[in-house]
């Protein structure tokens, strides 16, 4: 048995969800994901500086 769902159906559901709960400062979920990964990159940079500063 293989998956019967199509990518199109997935897209429709995702768009509906976007209207319900996405924080207003973001236009779409991609921006939110970039924000989360941006925080990760920032934390790693800060941790690196922290490590070197007190080494």
């Amino acid at each position: 048995m293989t998956n019967q769902e199509t990518p199109q159906e997935e897209q429709i559901n995702t768009e509906e969800d976007e209207k319900i709960g996405l924080p207003s400062i973001f236009k779409n979920w991609t921006q939110m994901y970039v924000f989360v990964l941006g925080e990760l990159a920032l934390l790693i940079c800060l941790f690196y500086i922290f490590t070197k500063l007190f080494e």
């Binding site: 969800d17 976007e18 319900i20 709960g21 996405l22 924080p23 989360v36 990760l40």
Partner: peptide, 23 residues
């Protein structure tokens, strides 16, 4: 979660808080 958006936000909240908390 109330919706997929609430589930996603819960997961992303964890993704943002976990590292500073562990630090």
């Amino acid at each position: 979660g109330q919706s997929a958006a609430q589930s996603r936000l819960g997961l992303l909240f964890n993704g943002m808080i976990k590292i500073p908390m562990q630090f």
